[in-house]
Design a protein around this nucleic acid. Structure first.
Lengths: 165, 165
DNA sequence: TATTTTCCCATGATATACCTTTGGTTGTTG
DNA sequence: CAACAACCAAAGGTATATCATGGGAAAATA
């Protein structure tokens, strides 16, 4: 299964339209069970995460994976109700149009402070949409934290697989 | 599984096209599950590592191994989100063309300061792409550090496998 | 009717596919 | 053993397709 990779900064026009980066579209197509050549994939936009600083896009398949994890929690448990609220009420279906664009509703643009440009960021099984300056800030903050305590090696150590084999 | 071995310096033309050394192509073919004779392998280029001084190429299989390790971390955990950002946003899919070349996007060339030549360096499960002079510098610095403290023997001692047997 | 939203078409820039040339190595044949 | 043919890797050029983006008409909504 292909993953969301790379970054792309695209323009947002007066009508709120943005191009989804072409490589991301390929992933969305692959992740939509109903998609077939010549048609436009559906996907899910979540806007309640990361303190509303960015939006997150999921292919239908990967959103389904997340939903299934929630479904494993005990019905009516506090945790499940909260997660269901966060993931379901704070998300919408979106459809890519003929030209590979979507319309970002005004509400979502306001939340992420997106005006004339949007930064698309590949995160593997999902992607994020940021206001470009906020993204750069977030990235620099992360890199700073990693370098100042020499955490880079530590973070990669989570990938050490000796105990799992 | 074949590994990336050796060095090769190839020209980069105005469009950013470079030939992938033929032996490296054999490894990429072997590491692409969808590859079959007569077709061109896909692979992954990572540009966020080693302080952006070089690019790194992974076969789909070995990148997949890394991705799977990340997927074992709890979804939405801080560690996982950081790793996904580092590994996914700072990488792209690339495809070898009919003639055994790839195009290096301008952004990646700038990061690694690559202009007219590129040095390909085998690193086993991955390979690196350097601006030739930067590579020589990096290599000399490493060798110098090793020799001035007589660390060569020490570094090889890490390969001691007695505890594993 | 005024305003927003959806659909459709147009365009310039860029990236991809295709074809050609060059040089080196191998190996075949007279 | 020399000459030639066949092959393959690297590198260069041109044509075609795709992508991001802009604008306008039609449809829907208020």
């Amino acid at each position: 299964m292909r993953r969301f990779r790379g970054e792309a900064e695209n323009k947002v026009d007066g009508k709120g339209r943005v191009s989804i980066p072409a490589p991301f579209r390929r992933v969305l197509e692959e992740g939509d069970p109903d998609w077939s050549d010549g048609f436009n994939p559906n996907f899910v936009l979540v806007y309640g995460r990361r303190n509303n600083k960015c939006l997150e896009g999921y292919s239908l398949k990967s959103m389904n994976d997340v939903d299934n994890l929630v479904s494993r929690l005990p019905r009516y448990s506090k945790e499940r109700e909260i997660l269901e609220r966060l993931l379901n009420s704070q998300s919408i279906y979106a459809q890519v149009d003929e030209n590979g664009r979507i319309v970002l509703p005004p509400k979502l643009r306001q939340l992420a402070k997106i005006t004339s440009k949007a930064m698309f960021v590949g995160m593997g099984e999902k992607f994020q949409i940021w206001e470009p300056d906020s993204y750069q800030e977030d990235m620099e903050l992360m890199e700073q934290k990693l370098s100042e305590n020499n955490l880079e090696e530590e973070i990669y150590s989570h990938l050490d697989d000796k105990e799992k084999l």
